[in-house]
């Protein structure tokens, strides 16, 4: 694994307000990296700093081994960016919009045609290629933005709030596309506050709080660290006294009766098989057994507990 994005001690101040206040980040090649946090916690500013679109007050950044401050053109040639609430020239067609940015990106026109056709096919917009973008839905615009990243053959794609304002189907389509591209070796940096979506797609996430990164790691690591590695298992059973049955089972740390024949078991490992084995062995009837995985939402709420969001925003 090679590190493609590295930021050290990044600080960006607007007047006295520090939008980004000492961030360290490292993104590996080919991974999907999520920047999570409430609005105004410094995600977009961090992205702009990575692209060299704004200058840091202090700290150093390296993107693909280049300095975005000193070599912005080289960085921007190899990095694609989908801004929050992406805009296109409404009076131009999808094809013309892509052709314009392809020319700006320095793709020679002979090659550009082939790349644009390929990219529009990938994002399933080939049928509307010659329609004006004014008629496009939000989801289509996001996909067109992704097509732009494809035309550029970007090695890193930075997507700011890519799914905000999309309906569930468009979100799914977009995520599938991102997954597909990530499988082909494109590194993705996504920012979002929609945690359920981030959980399904990101290899690693960084939790932002007031311009700082609170936590970085794989989703499972974070849930284990923040929530203490708890597994919550719910069983529905008859003819078995669970208190006795589970007395000797390892890893079980708690037992709470819920309403009608349902129990909640707290454990520090996945003990479903063991529990089922013991219940059935004791002659009980097991109607259902399920485990609820800890979600990023819980991590997030726990992590930001007591945080005044108005101040953060």
């Amino acid at each position: 694994m090679t590190t493609v994005i590295e930021a050290r001690g990044l600080i960006k101040r607007y007047g006295r307000f520090a939008a980004v206040d000492g961030i360290d980040l490292a993104v590996e090649k080919g991974e999907v990296f999520g920047l999570l946090g409430p609005n105004g916690s410094g995600k977009t500013t961090t992205i702009l700093l990575l692209l060299g679109l704004t200058e840091p007050t202090a700290g150093s950044i390296s993107v693909l081994g280049l300095d975005p401050l000193r070599q912005p053109l080289a960085v921007k040639t190899r990095v694609g960016y989908l801004p929050d609430q992406i805009g296109f020239y409404d009076h131009l067609t999808a094809w013309e919009n892509l052709a314009y940015t392809a020319r700006l990106a320095g793709v020679i026109s002979k090659e550009a045609d082939g790349r644009i056709a390929g990219a529009l096919g990938r994002v399933r917009l080939e049928e509307v290629a010659n329609r004006r973008v004014a008629t496009f839905s939000r989801g289509m615009r996001q996909r067109l933005g992704l097509a732009e990243v494809l035309v550029k053959k970007a090695e890193i794609a930075i997507l700011d709030e890519p799914t905000s304002g999309l309906d569930p189907q468009s979100t799914q389509e977009l995520l599938d596309l991102i997954r597909e591209l990530a499988g082909e070796g494109v590194t993705f940096v996504l920012s979002s506050h929609q945690l359920a979506m981030m959980q399904t797609i990101c290899d690693r996430v960084a939790l932002f709080r007031r311009g700082q990164v609170g936590l970085v790691g794989r989703v499972e690591e974070l849930t284990a660290n923040v929530l203490g590695g708890t597994f919550r298992i719910e069983v529905e059973t008859e003819n078995a006294d669970l208190v006795k049955v589970l007395a000797g089972v390892r890893h079980v740390s708690g037992l709470t009766p819920l309403q009608d024949r349902r129990w909640r078991i707290d454990a520090d490992a996945d003990v479903r098989a063991d529990v089922a084995h013991h219940i059935v062995g004791a002659g009980g009837v097991l109607h259902s057994i399920s485990m609820r995985k800890a979600t990023l939402d819980e991590v997030y709420v726990r992590f930001f507990e007591g945080e005044n969001h108005d101040v953060a925003a």
Binding site: K76, V79, Y81
Partner: peptide, 9 residues
């Protein structure tokens, strides 16, 4: 921001 994220100043 989309245009300026292309390799131009």
């Amino acid at each position: 921001s989309r245009v300026l994220s292309q390799p131009i100043y």
